[in-house]
Design a protein around this nucleic acid. Structure first.
Length: 326
DNA sequence: AACGGACCCAACCGCGTTTTG
DNA sequence: ACAAAACGCGGTTGGGTCCGT
């Protein structure tokens, strides 16, 4: 089934928009609102494709558009968000009020990509990987990232330094297997951890969790998410596990099934405080991971270490669900 | 001043997803 | 349930401008 072109291209203007065209488009939208792009050109008296009108409106004429002069702060945010999201320009733009995806994409391609490339002379094709090498975004040595036994991606190698500090766990769906817990609990940092409780006999004590024989443990503490940490995590870890789960953000359960993992993590960043929940209420799939910073001790290395130790102990010693949470 | 390459960015294009009938 | 339309996104293109020679 072929796809009908959005409009006949014959007799239509192309290329740069004139001031007159802009005025017509703006006036029409002011009077009738956005949408119905296919019909808009005719009704507005424009010899343009509807798609072109939409683009012109969204990227140029729409009220509140900021143009040019991307500040250092914005550039830094773009870099960070790009690390989080990759080339998800619309998502990135959504975090930069007044900026359009097109502008950010252009800015990245003309400014930042070059800069990233400069810091990554090996020349990876992966812009996300390249972002790792930005001087402002070196993985902090104070951060511990749990990387599971995921198949290395093409950018993992460039992260070997990070990975060397990583905690490796099993984190592939479905929830089977045994998680390997932190080798070193003493590192006072946020941590990505498998929420796992393994009984020595392989069973688990959770009721109604539906995880056939898999090990689960409950973790119901509020978590605060550190954006920079997430940046690092997203560079290093397969987050496909997030897709099917619900998140509870600031008390509201959100069905995240329709969102990509990165987007959902971004929600965490935005919401700042998040509790992880899943279909059985208290327990998490054994291979699910939680980016955790103790709400109580979020700013305290001691607090973080304490939480990490608690949860690690719960996982490593088959303690019960209650022991791991709260 | 003229030329040409590099750069920038608005606009286009194709395709996937969502909505509508 | 299905097809078509509409929408939205990310990659690419091409024209204008800048800058070095």
């Amino acid at each position: 089934m072929g796809r009908r072109p959005c409009c006949s291209k014959e007799g239509l203007n192309r290329g740069a928009w004139t001031a007159m065209e802009d005025t017509k488009l703006a006036d029409y939208i002011a009077a009738h609102g956005e949408g119905k792009w296919r019909d808009l050109p005719l009704k507005a008296g424009l010899k343009r494709c509807g798609k072109s009108c939409r683009l012109r409106w969204l990227n140029y004429l729409r009220p509140g558009i900021k143009r040019g002069n991307i500040t250092d702060d914005e550039a830094e945010l773009i870099i960070r968000l790009h690390k989080l999201l990759g080339n998800r320009w619309s998502l990135i733009a959504g975090r930069l009020p007044g900026r359009t995806d097109n502008e950010i994409k252009n800015f990245w391609n003309t400014n930042l990509r070059k800069k990233q490339h400069h810091h990554n002379p090996q020349g990876t094709q992966d812009p996300t990987a390249a972002a790792d090498h930005h001087e402002d975004h070196k993985p902090s040595s104070s951060k511990v990232v749990a990387i599971d036994n995921i198949t290395p991606t093409n950018h993992d190698q460039s992260r070997s330094d990070l990975s060397s500090k990583a905690i490796r766990t099993k984190a592939t769906r479905p929830c089977r297997g045994k998680a390997v817990f932190p080798h070193d609990h003493t590192v006072p940092s946020p941590i990505l951890m498998p929420a796992t409780r393994n009984n020595s006999d392989g069973s688990n004590d959770d009721q109604n969790c539906g995880h056939d024989g898999a090990s689960c443990f409950g973790l119901s503490c509020d978590l605060e998410i550190d954006e920079e940490l997430l940046s690092d995590l997203l560079q290093s870890t397969d987050f496909s596990w997030l897709i099917d789960d619900d998140l509870v953000i600031n008390g509201d359960r959100r069905d995240g099934g329709d969102k990509c993992p990165q987007e959902r993590l971004l929600e965490m960043v935005t919401a700042n405080t998040v509790a992880k929940d899943d279909d059985c209420g208290d327990c998490l799939d054994q291979d699910e991971m939680v980016v955790a910073r103790s709400a109580a001790g979020a700013t305290s290395a001691q607090g973080q270490t304490s939480l990490i130790a608690d949860v690690a102990a719960a996982a490593g010693t088959s303690s019960d669900a209650e022991g791991a949470g709260a």
